[in-house]
Design a protein around this nucleic acid. Structure first.
Length: 124
DNA sequence: ATAATGACATGTT
DNA sequence: TAACATGCCATTA
């Protein structure tokens, strides 16, 4: 288990029901700003250990092509969470994105610089 | 050690 | 809007 993987799992697990995050956001919160692609990889492996469906790409679209966790399933799970998903699998990420509080961020042992970046991009 | 591989992000066309 | 081109980096072969 790499530290990166652990962080990703911890972060995804803390995304509240009804909210979503982008791969890039998780990556930044994990302390490695540009490892969005790897976040997907971790989720692919982790599977049902976490709420993988609460992670989508930064354009509000579903990215998975996996046969185990296919787009339609993700849409269904999101709607169970209370998140609207349009017919063409688009989501209003602006309205639904999880904006972690400063206090929450402290739990992820991030550098001050990263905390600042997160606040800048996804700030409350 | 080196190279290929992505459930991505962002800027240009 | 959509298609392309680059940048990126943990994993795996």
């Amino acid at each position: 288990m790499s530290k990166f993987k652990d962080s990703v799992l911890q972060i995804v697990r803390s995304v509240p029901k009804g909210k979503i995050v982008s791969y890039g956001q998780v990556s930044l919160m994990a302390g490695i700003p540009r490892a969005a692609l790897q976040v997907g990889g971790v989720l692919h492996i982790a599977g049902d250990q976490v709420c993988w469906w609460r992670v989508i790409n930064n354009q509000g679209r579903i990215s998975t092509k996996c046969t185990e966790h296919f787009p339609l399933l993700q849409k269904q799970l999101l709607e169970e969470d209370g998140v609207k998903v349009s017919g063409d699998l688009k989501i209003d990420i602006k309205k639904n994105r999880w904006r972690p509080s400063l206090n929450t961020l402290k739990k992820f042992s991030l550098s001050d610089e990263h905390v600042y970046q997160i606040q800048e991009k996804f700030g409350v």
